[in-house]
Amino acid sequence: MSAPILEMKEIDVFYGPIQALKKVSLHIDEGETVSLIGSNGAGKSTLLMSIFGQPRAASGQIVYRGTDITHKSSHYIASNGIAQSPEGRRVFPDMSVEENLMMGTIPIGDKFASEDMQRMFDLFPRLKERRNQRAMTMSGGEQQMLAIARALMSRPKLLLLDEPSLGLAPIVVKQIFATLRELAQTGMTIFLVEQNANHALKLSDRAYVMVNGQIRLTGTGQELLVNDEVRNAYLGGH
């Protein structure tokens, strides 16, 4: 049993008077793919951002590879192996694919830039075709690939993905999840936030279900796929 790469212990997060996360505890082991599912406003994005200290946890502890990172700067966290692809993709619209990828190297410097860019082009051949195209003019699916590739450019040990399927056609979602599976097989630890529970649970080793800022359920992907509550709430009952 490998040690947890990330452990969150009883995290509370507030936006002003509103409590967005209530005593959230979870752990992600090295090499695992873990997903977090929940409806709109459950607090999934908040949880992901709180790993980066934005917003900061009011109480509780976040431990990453044995180090308490609860109060570390976002820059420290990013340059020590956690990367995320934020909700809504957020690629740099006026920059080309290559430039976007270069931006991804900011946390670690550009020592490995060309080599890593090549790896990204192998992983996402579509990006290679469009290496000089401006991100703004690319399709949603291509932008999502770019956002994931940009996150990977900082050579993360833990990859955080916020709703990679957002607003994409089913076929594109399938492609993206196929790539994520490929990525997971290379040993990458992935923490995936999704509304698309079906895809997420099939991909994941384990999953958490979040409701109103609290973890309601947890189990392996297979267990949750057949769980009645999950089926009714997130899988449309079929």
């Binding site: 976002s74 900011i106 946390p107």
Partner: peptide, 21 residues
Amino acid sequence: PVGRAWEALREDEIACRSMGL
């Protein structure tokens, strides 16, 4: 990197935060 960070900030501040900038 600082020059690139300026341009990144101009383009999308939230993306910058998600990179720990």
